[in-house]
Design a binder for these strands. Structure first.
Lengths: 247, 247
DNA sequence: CGACCTGTTGAACTCCGTCAAGGCGTGTGG
DNA sequence: CCACACGCCTTGACGGAGTTCAACAGGTCG
């Protein structure tokens, strides 16, 4: 589960591709520690791309890796096609998140990045970013921290996949989603509007759609949440988690 | 599953802590692209530490994070204690591997690193390494690639955890272990001497020890391998994998 | 020799996957 | 406007892989 503390000032972007070197607020997942001058140097190598409409790809597995992408507005799912044709969803990302970093050192991206709603991203050409890092140690430091966090998140996902049952996986997913979207939208009413399908969530959690559906039904019957199509209301997570994560 | 292409010239280290600035071959997971002069700069900030005897910690969760460690000789398991007291093994690492990188940006290490046999490591003070990276872009590039590979490995572990059954997990583990140790020891006889316990392997694969034992027994009865305490002989992996990884 | 730890084997149970059917909302065409 | 199809989600019944609990074998160390 990708979790960042990054916030992003929401942008009122016009509906066409822009090439703005002036809007320094573009990338808020990196650059927070930089001076104004350094931020301008960063701004000079990046550009805003969008909108990507729902279902369209920001990059695909076959695309040569050249850039990282910071999500500005919208949401993105990362998925890889398995050899048998099934799709495996590897993550969901929101404004302030960086995607594509795990392709560093490879010639191609590792999977497809698909917009879940109208989405704008900020392109960071990797070679230029690297050169800038060499000039700005603070930027290098930020990138290293960001990659390390991605490793920690992936490690945590492995551990959770091993020792949590379906219901706990679902709840952990929902609360991290809510926490994040709470930061973003400042809504604290515990209602989550899902930008992705239940099928995508099931795939991400390593469950069959039927199992996810059953888990949600059971949680609803226990009064933990309310499950309505693409809207989920969290009622009483504390009660559920208090019986202590048994192994 | 950690896989690196790094090779390492095996060192005949004396059994006491050494402080060798001359042995440039110390760290072979990074520095491969550097000039002689740059390698010397790298050597000047690192030092060899060891031996750690079996069961002793190179670092623990409570240890403040200051350094990365490249394994020179021996083997290391990474494990975290869960709140209920159970231990979760998160990885096994061998000469040429780098550990501790996912603590970057945190004040403490994320888990314990325990030697599985007499082990020497090379300590890389992180702050100094960062400063060196700013001076040597090639080194910065290597570090970024190394971190990205760790992300890919962890992502692959998530996917494997989801759609492989116990037997396939075991075989995948064994062959990656064998591949790696083959590179190291130049033995190609497909006999693996396990430095870790079966319990550790089970934990790493997300299985109960009983399930691992059963999987190994079944594979032995099928003629795929021979299971003898801490020695496993791989016989015919090709046959097993040919029926196509069915989801 | 006996205590202990690790690994193995057996039997019963549980959770999730699988297969099948049906409900619901949406879009399309008549 | 309704009829229908289609995709997505839900529900039910069943089976199987892995867990759990228990007993035991084999090695090591006191």
């Amino acid at each position: 589960m990708p979790i960042t503390n990054c916030r992003m000032t929401s942008l009122r972007l016009v509906g066409k591709q822009t090439d703005c070197t002036d809007c320094v607020v573009q990338v808020r997942c990196i650059g927070n520690s930089l001076s104004k001058q350094e931020l301008q140097a960063l701004s000079s190598i990046i550009r805003t791309v969008g909108p990507f409409k729902e279902g369209s790809a920001i990059f695909k597995m076959e695309t040569p890796f050249n850039s990282l992408f910071a999500i500005q507005h919208g949401s993105v799912k990362i998925e890889a096609a398995l050899e048998d044709g099934a799709n495996l969803v590897k993550g969901f990302y929101f404004p302030g998140h960086l995607i594509g970093a795990d392709a560093i050192g490879e010639s191609l991206y590792q999977y497809d990045a698909i917009a879940l709603e109208p989405t704008w991203v900020c392109e960071l050409p990797f070679t230029k970013l690297e050169m800038l890092c060499a000039q700005i140690p603070k930027l290098q430091h930020e990138i290293l921290i960001l990659l390390a966090r991605k490793i920690r998140d992936a490690d945590a996902a492995v551990a959770n996949g091993h020792h949590l049952n379906a219901e706990k996986k679902v709840l952990l997913f929902l609360q991290s989603l809510n926490k994040y979207r709470g930061i973003l939208t400042k809504k604290d009413d515990d209602v989550i509007e899902l930008p992705m399908s239940k099928g995508d969530i099931a795939s991400y959690l390593g469950l069959r759609p039927e199992s996810l559906s059953r888990a949600l039904s059971k949680l609803q019957s226990e009064g933990v949440l309310i499950n309505q199509a693409r809207k989920i209301t969290l009622l009483d997570l504390g009660r559920f988690f208090k019986p202590a994560l048994k192994r």
